[in-house]
Design a protein around this nucleic acid. Sequence first.
RNA 1: GGGCGAUUGGCUCAGCGGGAGAGCGCCUCGUUCACACCGAGGAGGUCACUGGUUCGAUCCCAGUAUCGCCCACCA
Length: 879
Amino acid sequence: MSRPDPIELPSQYAPSEVEGPRYERWEKAGYFVADAYSAAPAYCIVIPPPNVTGFLHIGHALNHTLIDALVRRRRMQGYNTLWLPGMDHAGIATQNVVERELAKEGLSRHDLGREAFVERVWQWKAESGGKILGQMRRLGDSVDWSRERFTMDEGLSRAVQTIFKQLFDDGLIYRAERIINWCPRCLTALSDIEVDHSDDEGELISIRYGGVGEDQANDSIVVATTRPETMLGDTAVAVHPDDARYTRLVGKTVELPLTGRRIPVIADDHVDPSFGTGAVKVTPAHDPNDFEIGRRHDLPSLTILDEHGVITAHGPFQGLDRFEARPAVVAALREQGRIVSEVRPYLHAVGHCSRCSTTVEPRQSLQWFVRVAPLAKAAGDAVRDGRVRLHPPEMNARYFAWVDDMHDWCISRQLWWGHRIPVFYGPDGEVCCVGPDEQPPAGWHQDPDVLDTWFSSALWPFSTLGWPDDTPDLRAFYPTSVLVTGYDILFFWVARMMMFGLYAMRGAEPADAVPFRVVALHGLVRDQFGKKMSKSRGNTVDPLDWVDRFGADATRFTLARGANPGADVAISEEWAAGSRNFCNKLWNAVRFALLNGAHVPAAPLSADTLSVPDRWILSRLSAVISDVDELFEAFEFGKICDILYHFAWDEVCDWYLELAKVPLASGDPQVAGTTRQALGFVLDRLLRLLHPVMPFVTEELWTALTGEESVTVASWPAFRQPDPVAEAEISSVMRLVTEVRRFRSDQGLRPGQRVAARLVGVEGSPLARHEQSIRSLLRLDPPADGFAASASLAAEGIAVELDVAGAIDVAAERRRLEKDLAAARSEAEQAARKLDNAEFTAKAPAEVVAKTRRRLEAAGSDITRLEQRLAAMQGGPST
RNA sequence: GGGCGAUUGGCUCAGCGGGAGAGCGCCUCGUUCACACCGAGGAGGUCACUGGUUCGAUCCCAGUAUCGCCCACCA
């Protein structure tokens, strides 16, 4: 119980000296390590796994701050708490990083070969990956490092293989020839969510198919397209069945320009007669719609682009890139007089690879898919029937929109880094899916593709706990308690965890099969003008830079304070500075307390011995505790911070500490002793309440104040001692003091200038026992011999007479009184109008009427008082 | 093209049927013995617009305008 000498506390908090050592001690003490065999209720959150290639950005900082606050509070509440850390192998991203590294050596992955390349990626991970884990320590994340996971770990690979096999056997995974999103740079298939759509400037070009010249009227048709180069692969022209303009052509063939081929004109409902010319060129191999049309009409599929997006069709365009081919084809068509109208600019959605921004090429190829319909149905039902609650609930609509209309998920990737598809092919094309402990038949070869990264991410809540084995961790911590993440990946990730979690745990009780019970969604971090952060804008914030300059606690507090459920968080350096100031304020409040001998009482404080200010602040404290508890349950981090900020700064520092100065300086050991205990108690509990959001400074101060080991494992406050009498009394003191301060300020009295004053009528008022405090707060001296009041004001039922001879500015005082009078009259008028309304009195609730009546009375007495004072001034002696 | 949300003081945001709030910024005063990363006081808003419901609307409903986000295979 040795306490540092309080005098040693400097007058400013220096986060950089505190944070590193504190975190080390926490980690060494094992405070963050969960116990699978604990009898305490479990509380588990899995981290949204950052990419192994990633660095801690401000979005992580927000996410981690919120998770850590939840977890730290539960830990203090005695839960068996697990925050499970880990990383995602990030297939394409990581492969790209290592390939770039190889490129510097003049090598490609093909030079190394698959095995050596994968080896190289592991080596890269060991040397340069996972930087973000160290950065998490700087933020103070209270994760259980003994349970760190990586999506390519052996255990997680087993989980992947197991669920793949199960899905395969259940017919929920299939292989098919489809149009998929293809990145011609990454040379792999992409799922829909790996494609970003943007409205790009394109050209809508009208091309005449069929005869030109004299035959034109009879057998030609004009199609509109944004991708003229794909015409080389056209195998039909489609029109709407009811489109009278073209009925005569349906069933006939037209000549496809530049190729000499004749292609049929077909009728299909998909065609919108009002768009363009009402006729569509059909390229089944290079357009998803055309693919479907081709299927319906049994059209041939002509592939004319290779995996790099280069034209393969024989002829003059062969070997041209798709973007070179476009103008070349148009030029050739123009030469033949096939371009009917001038091309016109056209804005349309174009897909880009989310990894490298290359324009995605729809491509027909053989890929693996997850049949999502039954899985998505279950994922939707879990939310519909309340087994999983989304927070805020407004997100339900978005969630349902997604799961209720989900395309089958393309899960194969033509990459080398990732979980290889556990399917083997026999010499005669036989197929077999191999489970984790099974061997493929000799001589069979494995599918070369790997799985989409999100496939393994979708297993995260249970693969990290040991599934498919029935482990103690899985039993203790599944379903996880809350999933905290940005709403931007609600669909990417959350919906998929739901699908796979419910599927993997289908044997469990429905209520316990869910991967998490609650999904708490937060927003994106934006700059001080609400703009998205981006490197090109130059408005990004590096959280570690803030940690360096303002401290981890200030960084966390800034983020948490801006976090309203589901809404974006706007932050700026000024806010971070404000949070740093708050840390410093706490620091100095505790410093003051220690300098004055404050300490945490061994026994509960008895209300009988406490002073009214003590009782008041304890009453306020209990209100704050219950508010904070309630707000934590609702993930209202912004409000939690707001309440604690104002309680700490306004009530504890600005009022309570000032009020405490009187008893502390009184020299009465009894009185001072009680205050020291109350002060110690309040600060102790305040620090505990703040600890989840501001772990470092609270730890430093709390250990200094209590002499105990760590607030990390201290109990969460559950103190309840409301005291309406004390609250009313101190409110009255506060109003009086504020009123007199305003008066003094208006008079131009310096804040520190002492003046003599008499409090008339204080005897018999509840304020009587606070006279000394009031005088202390207002720098009022007792009236001496020859005291002559030169100014007075009335407030809270007493009159304050001041001897301010010579210091008063009569004109300023009159202006203020007149202004106040006007305000009071307007207030009275408003209240009176409301009361006069007969219907109002009849229909409004009694309490509202009573309240309004009180308003009117208060305003009335204000008016009387102000009028009297004005009259006194006018008639009275000028000073 | 669908869906969702926003519009409150200079900025970012709370509030959401009965007296307009916070932080930062701004103005005035202050070297009062925890803190100038401070203290005291103050200015500043017809709560986007138009209608409706109600005794009463910033709050509920409808429409308008502007902005934002998500989803989407109209060539």
